[in-house]
Design a protein around this nucleic acid. Structure first.
Lengths: 97, 97
DNA sequence: TTTTAATTTAGACATTCGCTTAATTATCTA
DNA sequence: TAGATAATTAAGCGAATGTCTAAATTAAAA
């Protein structure tokens, strides 16, 4: 739990998550998006992985990262705790177009 | 944005938020829930207030704190960014009991 | 008006965090 | 097998964080 909130606390890590919405990317591709050393990005990826917000798949010489539903679901569950308080209005019927 | 993620990163501050689901509480009541000095709790309350996750209302000698929807909505919006990726299944029709 | 109570502000200190460069591990290819 | 490439691990450093005690502020009570 702590690891997940810690992971999304850093702006670089949040950017990495956003970047991965485009689909899986290897560590080098991710690092190239940032004006920061590769070891730093590697460290960020490690924290995101520990938090189960991303998954790592070794593809030969490369390591491919993608979003991991597991961690997001846990955080989402935490948020639901507050929905009772705020009573977010929900549609009775939703029309699908 | 940063302030909100920073605010929910700390376990004590998350506990304070949970505690406030029970309804508004003054600073002393909140502090009494924790084995921690009042100044520390006061500092946590300040960070939560800056993040617009709680609101402070001065009631005479006391200061009453309650949850603030504003901050929660912003964080919730951030989360929605990822819903497209995960395609959380949604009910076509929801029956209200 | 003096005292008491609620809360915050200020200052100090240890720990954690994010970053860098240098070294290491693993894989591919000539 | 040697050399090059992808990525991580290690070591170190300044800045930010969370906590405390003590002092200041504000409002109610006596």
């Amino acid at each position: 739990m702590d690891a997940k909130f810690k992971a999304i606390n850093d702006p670089t890590r949040r950017e990495i998550l956003q970047f991965l919405v485009n689909g899986p990317q290897n560590a080098g591709q991710i690092a190239s998006q940032f004006d920061m050393s590769k070891p730093s990005i590697s460290h960020h990826l490690d924290l995101l992985k520990q938090a189960k917000l991303i998954q790592a798949d070794k593809k030969g010489q490369f390591i491919e990262y993608k979003l991991d539903k597991t961690g997001f679901e846990v955080i989402h569950a935490w948020f639901k705790t507050f929905s009772t308080y705020f009573e977010f209005p929900k549609p009775k019927i939703r029309i699908e177009i």
